[in-house]
Amino acid sequence: MEAFQQMLSQAGWAQGMQPWALSGLAMLFAGGTILGGVAVGAMFFIWTERKVAGYIQSRYGPMYVGHFHGVLQSIADGVKLLLKEDIWPTDADKFLFRIAPLLVFTGAFLSFVVLPFGPDFVGASLDIGLFYAFATSSLVVMGVIAAGWGSNNKWSLYGAMRGAAQVISYEIPLGLAVLPVVMSVGSLNLGTLAEAQRGWLWSWHLFNPIFFVSFVIYLISSLAEVNRVPFDLPETESELVSGYHTEYTGMKFAFFFLGEYADMFVVSAIAVSVFLGGWYTGIPAVDAFVPAPLVFILKSVFLVFVQIWLRWTLPRLRVDQLMYVCWKVFIPLSLANLFIYGLIRSMVG
């Protein structure tokens, strides 16, 4: 946002504007950029998902729209979804049914504000960035519950209940897993966390044994956080038809869809800035001339690819097994991890 504000204050037509107007305009620009980026990015991920799925399943995936490997397929799908009939279940709770997709999308979208794409490319460099990101991404669960309840469909309700239980449970190991890193750096600001990993490859947090355990816990928990296979229990198309968004059509469904893919990027980007060296390439000499956002986005896209890859390889867990993994494995493990790190730090100093 600061970058926008600076640009605006230098631009000729904006000379003489009030400071509040200037900062308001900058906010609009920044928000618009992020919104556009999220929409386009999510569409790109949808296309990637289908191509990767096609490759894994020895078929082509989309091939026609856009001439080159169906690159414009997502846009065609978007247009189709826009033109679809908007169906309301007879006894749906109108307010909740309408608000649910917006909540899901907003939750995913808000987190983008704090993602540090580069030293200067950040919507808002908040000191509680990490906390903020977790908080907003758990807004998604409100949307899921609203969708499940508002649809007045028993299968949707099941999906919503599972979603609530799952997301709330997995927030705990997710938060605990990043705490050792936060202790080490002493900040919740994502930019600062990334900054701490400047230098050669081994200065990334990933290559610290304690943080590596954290990373593994984070990666798996984040799959549950964004409802991806093997933890896609709120959807489970083979059990709950389509879970909480069974009754949604058209653009409302598209919002759920976009939200899911945006969320995938958010958790990946947080992992990149906390564990994978943020916008640094790992070789100081290269850092000087490679644009920081490119590095950051490429790393995040790789993690998104890992999520896609897992989705098309693994079966799905049962709901009690899911809870078992969380409460009996990840939470004790991440607590122990945190404790050991604290012990080492207090002894070494």
Binding site: A53, Q57, S58, T236, T313, L314, P315
Partner: peptide, 16 residues
């Protein structure tokens, strides 16, 4: 059966 358990890929391999 793979589909029922949540793995979609085996289905396509089997159909192939």
């Amino acid at each position: 059966y793979g589909l029922d358990i949540g793995a979609m890929t085996p289905f396509f391999h089997a159909l192939r």
